[in-house]
Amino acid sequence: MFVIRSKKRDELQKYLLSNNIETLIHYPIPPHKQPAYNSWNEESFPITEEIHKQCLSMPISGVQNMDVSNDGSSATMATSRTRMQPSR
């Protein structure tokens, strides 16, 4: 996995998908809210919750070529960089 953080994660994910770049949110439920940690479910972990809302798993593969790709994944890094520029 190649995981990035973005304050505009959901917007970035939609933008990437519109450019044929699939991404994933590997853990849609914060760790302390998972059933396995039910004794912590009511606890508040603000930093964990903030990070959880920002993580996005990007496609990465040893066989991908960043210059040429039939499925559009070559645009991943360039497209991501464009969308992750700070707003002014």
Rank of each mutant, 00 (worst) to 15 (best):
E11H: 04
V63Y: 13
D67M: 14
D71R: 05
K8I: 03
N65I: 12
M84E: 09
A75S: 13
E22N: 07
Q54I: 04
V68R: 12
M84L: 14
E50K: 13
Q34W: 12
S39M: 15
S57L: 13
H52P: 05
H26Y: 08
K7I: 03
Q34A: 14
A75T: 03
S57R: 14
E42C: 09
A36W: 08
R83K: 11
N65G: 08
S6P: 01
P59W: 02
K53H: 08
W40D: 13
Q64W: 04
M84R: 02
S74I: 07
V63D: 10
N19S: 07
R5G: 00
S73C: 14
L17N: 07
L24R: 12
A78C: 08
A36L: 11
N65F: 11
L16C: 03
I47V: 15
V63E: 15
N70M: 10
P46T: 12
S80Y: 13
R9F: 00
E22I: 03
Q85S: 11
I47N: 15
M1G: 06
E43L: 13
P28D: 06
E43T: 07
S44G: 06
L56W: 01
P46F: 10
S74H: 15
N19K: 11
L12T: 00
L17G: 04
A75R: 03
Q85I: 08
L56E: 01
I25Q: 15
Q85F: 12
L16W: 00
F45L: 14
E22M: 05
P31T: 08
R5S: 02
R83L: 11
S73N: 10
S69Q: 06
S57W: 13
N41W: 10
P35Y: 10
E49M: 07
H26E: 13
E43G: 06
M84H: 02
K7Y: 01
D71P: 02
P46R: 08
I60L: 10
L12Y: 01
R9G: 00
K14L: 10
C55M: 15
I51C: 09
D10R: 04
T23R: 04
T82L: 15
I25P: 03
G62I: 00
P31L: 07
I60F: 08
I51E: 14
N38I: 07
P59Q: 14
K53C: 09
K33Y: 09
K7S: 04
S80V: 10
P35M: 12
W40I: 04
T79R: 10
L56H: 01
L56I: 05
S44P: 05
P30N: 09
Y37S: 08
Y15M: 07
E11R: 03
R81C: 03
S44F: 10
Q64I: 00
H32N: 08
G72L: 04
K14I: 04
T48L: 14
S80T: 15
F45R: 14
L24G: 03
V63R: 15
P35T: 14
E49C: 13
N38P: 03
H52V: 06
S87C: 07
F2Y: 04
I60Q: 07
Q54V: 03
R5Y: 02
K7H: 02
T76R: 01
H52R: 11
L17E: 12
Q64K: 07
A78D: 13
V68T: 13
S6E: 01
P86T: 07
N38W: 13
P30H: 09
R88G: 09
M77R: 04
